[in-house]
Design a protein around this nucleic acid. Structure first.
Lengths: 234, 234
DNA sequence: TGTACATCAGTGAACGCGCGTTCACTGATGTAC
DNA sequence: TGTACATCAGTGAACGCGCGTTCACTGATGTAC
């Protein structure tokens, strides 16, 4: 499909990606990226559609063609954010190899790492005032499902069995602890630690040991006394 | 100081509290209350000084006499919020009587109860973008100190001794778990539980058992094997 | 006890600003024949 | 391969709005003598 040697195209030769009289080429993506950057810088109350358009080099009316209105754009950003969180959780799960505790610890590291790495996205995801459409609902449930799978795996509970109250508690407290840690870290409450390694050190020197300590408590009989049942699924 | 029987004041007799040609009487408090209500309803990005003035029945320029500008008002609200949180934590601590674990559990219940009871205040307290003055700094440290005292009490560590890494982890994870629980609850992520008792049930049927489970893990040698040392500080 | 005066706590009109959204439009791209 | 036309993705000017803050002002309250 690519002309490879002789005849140069007669007219302009800006590579398709960089052209700009064109239409824009990738305005949709540019608007999403600009939204995330703006949210990260100023939070939701500093967000404005006009500023997003400005940063994308486009007139204030342009975003309407892609997202309808401001709420539509934010809904798409939130949906992509949950998809990103799901990827981060699954990567953590894989990092933990076969060990159910390590899997959950790494999911937690993935959760907080996502929050610190994409504060703009993360700040948007858990807003009560953003009204969900089907896609957003689905993507948020998908992220939660990864966590739930990890807890089922820890206790050897198959997907068809209900969780016991104790197991529910474990799921909730794990979710709460990583969510709270992320929020507190983003709010600057851990700045006093002044860790040399920055973000990575916060995850590995503070969060990971804390989660290990937390998780050690949650697997009471699962790995201590009797041998564990085989992991659910796979 | 109060005239107690005979002579009625000659002119108008609205009781001082309800007068309104007066000056207003308690505008400062009215503005703070209105701010909290507005924050609870619409969050920080829905907050406006004019709306606060409107709800207080006063012209848009009036708040400037008491707080300088909008940031000044919010700073005062945040300071009061931390003072309220401190009271809630201390009340929890007292509810736990002599038992260090119960004290921390009740502190946690107090923390989340405060957040759910005053979402306007709570949402404001952990904003990175609010610049602190001395009073705000002091009030936030005071709240944290109550939590820290509870953890020291759990491990029998006096105020002059440093905490070990494990003890630090316990403090951090406790703070994270209650903070995250509160945030998730406020964001509506626990709505699916549809508890009959509402807020109280969420605290007592979900949060409290979860914290007990969590705390049981954090006091490894402290209460299980050897007898605990006497609590630090009375 | 009166009086003069300073200060305090409010009014209300006005400012300039950035916002979301609308509107008629235009030029580039894609498609049917 | 050309041509006619529809559609798509943008422009830029304009709208009405609510905002924070300023300004000169006013009337009530507190204080000195």
């Amino acid at each position: 499909m690519e002309s490879f040697v002789l005849p140069m195209p007669k007219k302009s030769f800006p590579p398709a990606a960089a052209r700009d009289g064109y239409h824009h080429g990738a305005l949709r993506k540019a608007l999403i990226d600009a939204s995330e950057a703006l949210l990260a810088e100023r939070g939701l109350e500093g967000f404005s559609l006009r500023e997003v358009a400005r940063r994308s080099g486009v007139s204030p009316a342009a975003p309407a063609h892609h997202f309808g209105d401001a709420a539509g754009l934010l809904r798409v950003v939130a949906t992509l954010a949950f998809e990103g969180l799901t990827v981060a959780l699954e990567a953590g799960n894989a990092r933990g190899k076969g060990d159910p505790v390590a899997r959950l610890r790494e999911q937690g590291v993935g959760y907080v790492g996502f929050a610190l790495g994409y504060p703009g996205r993360f700040g948007l995801m858990f807003r009560p005032d953003i009204e969900k459409d089907d896609e957003l609902e689905r993507s948020s449930l998908a992220a939660f499902a990864v966590l739930e799978w990890g807890v089922r795996n820890l206790y050897g509970v198959s997907a068809s069995q209900p969780l016991t109250p104790t197991q529910w508690n474990a799921l909730l407290s794990l979710w709460s602890v990583v969510h709270g840690f992320a929020q507190l870290a983003l709010a600057g409450n851990f700045d006093r630690f002044e860790l040399a390694g920055g973000r990575e050190a916060l995850l590995r020197q503070v969060l990971a040991p804390m989660l290990d300590q937390h998780l050690a408590a949650l697997k009471p009989a699962a790995t201590r006394g009797r041998s564990r049942t085989k992991g659910v699924r796979a």
